[in-house]
Design a protein around this nucleic acid. Structure first.
Lengths: 252, 252
DNA sequence: CAAGCTAATTGGTAAGACCAAAAAGGATTC
DNA sequence: GAATCCTTTTTGGTCTTACCAATTAGCTTG
């Protein structure tokens, strides 16, 4: 029935955390309110207190609640979209966001990057070229290339936000798959695009850097589109096979 | 001695999580590696197994490790800057990042926002005006204003990243304080700036929206600068008072 | 050598106990 | 009568022990 692989399962604390998350989202516990005591939650949800503690810690790590010793757990902020389970960002949204944000980051980096960082980036461009020859994947250099530019902005918030976007990719299996597919299907131009960004950074030209970065990520979006169509064909084939199977079964 | 209020203290699991985080950052456990068993960690860190579990869950929620039942905890990714404790983003970095990112978001929103969203944003501008009259703080409407625009981009990744930036503010006590100070010192122009953004969105003019949003956040940066200077003066006064107190004590 | 089974390992959860911090309530004092 | 202090209760923090379930390693067996 379900499309998800079900993964590890178990993890009772996650169920509880999900439930509490929904209660927060429902507005039952507004900001500043105190959650029921651990012992009460344990009883009402029919779990042990350690499990309750684990769930509350999960919320605490996400900054949703604050635990005060001897007092209770208080709501710090209400859950946003990113906190809701089953929340998936598409590869297109992700790349569009990167196009805008990393474009600006490149522009800023063009005015801030040190010679050392530029040399580092050049090394990464070479590494990307090498990685593309061997098809074993691992776009680690690609990630480092983009993060190094983000770091070169000298703005930790910008770096953190862009790193956050890269991390989001791995939270969505579909997005990760699509990216991998797009990468293997589109090898040659990538190095040139990366080198164009580097050239613009070297020239200390913010507008050129922004344009080069945007062009690169626009190309990535195109690759994603291509990969999507490929997959659409596969899906159609699979559907046809399933259809035929049902027919065969029904008539046998 | 220390400037921080020490907060809640306790939380043994946080110490452990911090230690494990450092071990991850040190490269001792590369991606894919398995962490020692819970029972082993409990012994080597001289804590109980529930505490170890809590620490591992803290890492798990942050996406750093993946726990497989009956097998162990495996490293999913290495910690980035945002994961490191004691990591503080300055209010300036944060606002600069917002200037760039939210500027682009506003430009995109100008082409995507629905009439309903525009009406919602107008209501928030009015709410901001009302909140400014009563000095009790709570810039909730301000946050909603910016997040609603981010949502109007129809891009979940953009929304999530911008929400992430807002959340970062609360992780840094200094940044939060500075913002509050800047807000109380600078009341009048804010509403006009917000309304200018709304006008540009209404006109479906991306460039005007970007410019208005950037102008607004540039103004915020100015306010922060002003608040910083104010605080510098206060610090100087406090230092002088302390100096005099020591002198008085020594000569009495 | 391969397949299958058994036992050890490892995470998941429960239950009970005790400590320390905080809050609540009552007694004392001014 | 009000404020203050102290005792009691509540609440989170941690440990210990125990048992279950999934996984893995190792051995047995064909």
């Amino acid at each position: 029935m379900s499309d998800v692989p079900a993964k590890t399962q178990d993890r009772l604390y996650q169920d509880l955390a999900r439930n509490l998350l929904e209660e927060l989202a429902s507005g039952r516990y507004p900001v500043g309110a105190r959650l029921p005591a651990e012992r009460e939650l344990a009883i009402s949800y029919a779990v042990s207190r350690p499990t309750v503690r684990e769930a509350i810690i999960a919320l605490e790590v996400q900054g949703l609640v604050e635990v005060k010793v001897g007092s209770g757990a208080y709501v710090r902020r209400l859950p946003g979209k990113g906190d809701l389970p089953g929340f998936n960002i598409t590869a297109f949204e992700l790349t569009e966001a990167r196009l805008l944000f990393e474009g600006e980051a490149a522009a800023l980096a063009a005015t801030q990057a040190t010679d050392e960082e530029l040399a580092q980036i050049e090394g990464l461009v070479d590494a990307i070229a090498r990685e593309n020859l061997q098809a074993d994947g691992a776009e680690r250099s690609d990630r480092e290339f983009h993060l190094t530019i983000a770091r070169a902005t000298r703005n930790t918030a910008i770096f953190d936000a862009i790193e956050h976007l890269w991390d989001l990719r791995s939270t969505s299996p579909e997005a990760a798959l699509l990216h991998e597919k797009a990468r293997t299907a589109n090898i040659k131009p990538v190095v040139d695009e990366h080198r164009a960004v580097l050239t613009a950074l070297r020239a200390r030209d913010p507008n050129a850097a922004r344009a080069a970065m945007r062009a690169h990520l626009a190309q990535v979006i195109d690759s994603l589109l291509f990969a999507t169509e490929e997959r659409a064909i596969e899906d159609a084939r699979r559907t046809a096979r399933a259809k035929r199977a049902r027919y065969t079964q029904a008539t046998s």
